[in-house]
């Protein structure tokens, strides 16, 4: 019966961790609503998370869109459905691949960076120094990052969607013989407002998760270089899993019939 006890302990541990993360998020929200505010920190976070993530998001999206066009063309050819490439690329990028891949790239790039930075600040007593200088670490470090990611990741997703569709367009018109005007017309005609809304909402939720996990693991890191390493690794793992879980839930909310 020891395996039942182990399973129980693991389940309780998971629930306790979820509770701690939920409390951390709740505390962040209460600090978001009460002054003082740190607009400079917010601007820096917007720049770091948004602007500086554009290259990696753009490259990820264009290659994914191109590969998707090739796959749909090859797969569609088995039942004479090659013509659906524009529609499937559009729906695939906007509904799923755009938000999920951008979310995962943000988890890799931003969550790890936030966790490592805050964990290092904790190890080197910079967090304690903030407190002694009458500055609440949640307000100064967590709120600007979580808010910035929630605001800017939807924009990154929108950019990723457009670049991904362009990747499919470039492959389809360049190598698969599609007519350029017809491709664009098919894409525009097929997409619905619900597709775009779901994409942006997913972006906001994934951005919030990515920054929140970075801050949570950073603030709760252990001592020394090993503590920083564990916090960074844990934050990316947790962010990636939560993003995929949230994607499943949001897809169900938006598209279940």
């Amino acid at each position: 019966m020891s395996w039942i006890a182990a399973l129980g302990r693991a389940a309780l541990g998971l629930l306790a961790a979820m509770g701690r993360v939920a409390m951390f998020f709740g505390t962040s929200v209460t600090h978001l609503l009460r002054p003082p505010f740190y607009p400079r920190e917010l601007a820096l976070a917007l720049l770091n998370i948004g602007w500086l993530s554009l290259p990696v998001v753009g490259l990820t999206a264009i290659f994914t869109g191109g590969a998707l066009a090739l796959q749909i063309y090859a797969g569609g050819a088995r039942f004479n459905a090659e013509a659906v490439v524009p529609q499937i690329v559009a729906i695939g990028m906007v509904r799923e691949l755009g938000p999920v891949l951008v979310g995962l790239m943000i988890a890799a790039r931003v969550t790890s960076s936030i966790a490592a930075e805050i964990a290092t600040m904790k190890v080197t007593e910079q967090i304690d120094a903030l407190v002694t200088l009458s500055t609440h670490p949640m307000k100064y470090l967590t709120v600007p990052r979580v808010l910035a990611a929630t605001l800017v990741v939807p924009l990154l997703v929108a950019v990723g969607d457009v670049i991904g569709i362009f990747g499919g367009y470039a492959v389809a018109t360049g190598t698969l013989g599609f007519n350029a005007a017809a491709y664009i017309q098919n894409t525009v005609d097929f997409l619905q407002m619900r597709d775009i809304t779901s994409s942006l909402v997913k972006g906001a939720v994934f951005g919030c998760i990515a920054a929140l996990m970075g801050c949570y693991f950073g603030m709760n890191s252990g001592r020394g270089a090993q503590g920083v390493g564990r916090a960074t690794k844990g934050s990316v793992e947790a962010a990636a899993v939560l993003i995929l879980a949230a994607n499943f839930v949001l897809t169900g909310v938006f598209f279940s019939v």
Binding site: E125, D128, A129, V131, T132, S134
Partner: peptide, 14 residues
């Protein structure tokens, strides 16, 4: 806290 100043062991500069 405004009444206090502190020098940390490793300086703890930002």
């Amino acid at each position: 806290l405004a009444r206090f100043g502190m020098l940390f062991q490793g300086a703890a500069l930002f």
